[in-house]
């Protein structure tokens, strides 16, 4: 649009002779735009002038069957990737962790480890409870891969392998160490004075 010209239009008072040819106010303008002098609330006139919206409803005649087939086709297409999962193709091969067994039944851990970790993290960060059974640090200590020494450095590493396969994004490793600490094998240093704050 041409700014100066339009600004000039705005600047001119309606009483001015030159402005007389122009439309005076918005109500008139709206009707003028619609090409009719009649009242706005006339649906017939308006619908004729509306472009775009109304036409969406009158798509070229797609047959009912065509539409059903198209929908089914789209569903099948989106399902293709999960077919492999159902068929057990490319199941991740996980390295066995250190020690004989996991801290709990493997099926239980496999299903509930997100909740266990989440519960544990809140207890540790907010309440200062430092049990180790379900701690992420302990997971890392047992499951760090033999090649990388990490749970999340390569595609084969414990956490990444499975999460890649399941398509579940992880953000634990944005902050948490993926490798055990150097002193991890050594049990936590006992305080010189073994005094407990509580009943123990």
């Amino acid at each position: 649009m041409n700014a100066p010209e339009n600004l000039a239009t705005l600047g001119s008072p309606p009483e001015h002779p030159q402005g007389a040819g122009r439309v005076r106010n918005a109500a008139e303008a709206a009707t003028a735009t619609l090409g009719t002098k009649k009242h706005l609330g006339r649906p017939g006139v308006l619908l004729q002038r509306m472009n775009g919206m109304a036409r969406v409803a009158n798509l070229p005649d797609l047959g009912k069957w065509f539409r059903i087939v198209a929908c089914l086709g789209a569903m099948a297409f989106t399902a293709i990737p999960s077919m492999q999962v159902v068929a057990g193709v490319d199941l991740p091969k996980l390295e066995h962790g250190k020690g004989d067994k996991c801290v709990d039944d493997v099926a239980f851990i496999r299903r509930h480890h997100p909740d266990l970790l989440k519960h544990h993290r809140d207890e540790t960060v907010r309440l200062g409870i430092r049990t180790t059974k379900y701690s992420l640090k302990k997971c890392v200590e047992c499951h760090a891969g033999s090649k990388t020494g990490s749970v999340a450095s390569s595609k084969e590493d414990f956490c990444v392998a499975c999460h890649r396969y399941a398509g579940a994004k992880l953000d634990c490793w944005d902050c948490h160490a993926t490798k055990p600490g150097k002193q991890a094998a050594v049990p936590d240093a006992k305080p010189v004075l073994p005094l407990h704050g509580g009943s123990k």
Partner: peptide
């Protein structure tokens, strides 16, 4: 008592004893 013991037994490490440890399952109090 522990403090005294700490002083006599391991003076160089005394300050470890000032911070009090607690059982892992026990939260901050």
């Amino acid at each position: 008592g522990g403090l005294v013991a700490g002083v006599t037994l391991a003076p160089g490490l005394l300050f470890y004893g000032v911070a009090q440890s607690r059982a892992p399952e026990e939260g901050a109090s």
